[in-house]
């Protein structure tokens, strides 16, 4: 069994500014969820949004629940709510 899996993380808009990066490679333990990935990233980038409700996670371009498990080679993105507008 693999000791770690590799994912590609992308940040957009306000989260990109907070993290100071658009894209980064990350290794996480097998079975890690989106929430686990975000927790690792928050330790690396303390300015990242703390309020979980203000963030959505996507795996391979599909919005996913925080409990979704990531797989080796996945593209994981953290995005703010979209613009909305009236």
């Amino acid at each position: 069994m693999a000791v770690a899996i590799a994912v590609r993380v992308r940040f957009f808009a306000r989260l990109r500014e907070q993290s100071g990066t658009e894209i980064e490679a990350l290794q996480v333990p097998p079975g890690a969820t989106l929430e686990d990935v975000y927790d690792v990233l928050r330790r690396k980038h303390p300015a990242l949004e703390a309020e979980r409700k203000a963030v959505r996670g996507a795996i391979n371009q599909e919005l996913s629940d925080w409990s979704a498990v990531v797989a080796d080679g996945d593209e994981v993105a953290f995005i703010p709510p979209v613009s909305g507008g009236h």
Binding site: F12, A54, A58, I79, P81, S83, G84
Partner: peptide, 16 residues
């Protein structure tokens, strides 16, 4: 997933 950043008289804001 498209985001708007407003450059306004009172500063720069992301609209969410």
């Amino acid at each position: 997933p498209i985001w708007k950043k407003e450059h306004a008289a009172d500063g720069t804001y992301w609209i969410e």
